[in-house]
Computed example of a mutant assay.
Amino acid sequence: MGIIKVENIRVFANHGCLKEETAIGSDYRVDLKVKADLEKSATSDALSDTVDYVLLNKIVVEEMAIPSALLEHVAKRILRRVFTEGKLVTVATVAVSKINPPIGGDVEMVTIELTEKRKS
């Protein structure tokens, strides 16, 4: 078993419950960690035997481009696609962070994190 991390994916997106948030948009950070059997790729040196982190980044960028009211909803969509398109992934964790959220305080970011295991 091994772990692949794609960390600090920076995107600008239009998520939020407030109309202004979806109109103006803001900066986000996404961290994705997947577990998979990497033994075959460690030996074969073949991209087809591993989880392609270019694909993982693409999934995050595409799903973050679809506006949602809640970060939980975006995170769930990302996980759904990771399991659909990353056939070797057994467990995935995604953390979606809104940078400088409009919550009336000096807060660097708000983060939601979801973890799922592949369903049999």
Rank of each mutant, 00 (worst) to 15 (best):
V34L: 08
K35N: 14
A36Y: 14
A36T: 04
A36E: 13
D37R: 00
L38V: 13
E39A: 13
E39K: 07
E39Q: 13
K40A: 12
K40R: 15
S41D: 03
A42K: 11
A42C: 15
A42S: 15
T43N: 11
T43I: 09
S44E: 00
S44G: 07
D45P: 01
D45W: 10
A46E: 10
A46M: 13
L47K: 14
S48H: 11
S48M: 10
S48L: 07
D49C: 04
T50Y: 11
V51E: 06
D52L: 04
Y53L: 08
Y53M: 08
Y53C: 06
V54W: 03
V54F: 06
L55Y: 03
L55A: 04
L56G: 05
L56Q: 04
L56I: 10
N57M: 10
N57S: 12
K58R: 09
K58M: 08
I59N: 04
I59W: 05
I59A: 03
V60N: 05
V61L: 00
V61N: 01
V61P: 01
A65C: 06
A65V: 02
A65D: 11
I66W: 00
I66C: 05
I66F: 03
S68Y: 05
S68A: 13
L70H: 10
L71D: 14
H73G: 06
H73K: 13
H73E: 06
V74E: 01
A75Q: 02
A75R: 02
A75G: 02
A75C: 02
A75I: 07
K76P: 05
R77S: 05
R77K: 08
R77I: 00
I78M: 00
I78Q: 01
I78A: 00
L79D: 01
R80D: 09
R81F: 01
V82A: 02
V82H: 07
F83V: 14
T84P: 04
T84K: 15
T84V: 15
E85C: 08
L88H: 10
L88D: 13
L88S: 06
L88F: 11
V89W: 03
V89G: 04
V89M: 06
T90N: 14
T90V: 10
V91M: 15
A92H: 14
A92Q: 15
A92D: 15
A92Y: 15
T93S: 15
T93R: 14
T93I: 12
A95R: 13
V96N: 10
S97N: 02
K98R: 05
N100T: 02
P101A: 11
I103D: 05
G104S: 10
G104M: 03
G105L: 04
V107N: 11
E108A: 04
E108M: 04
E108Q: 00
E108C: 03
M109K: 06
M109A: 12
V110W: 03
V110A: 10
V110Q: 08
T111I: 02
T111C: 05
T111G: 09
I112W: 03
I112N: 07
I112Y: 01
E113V: 09
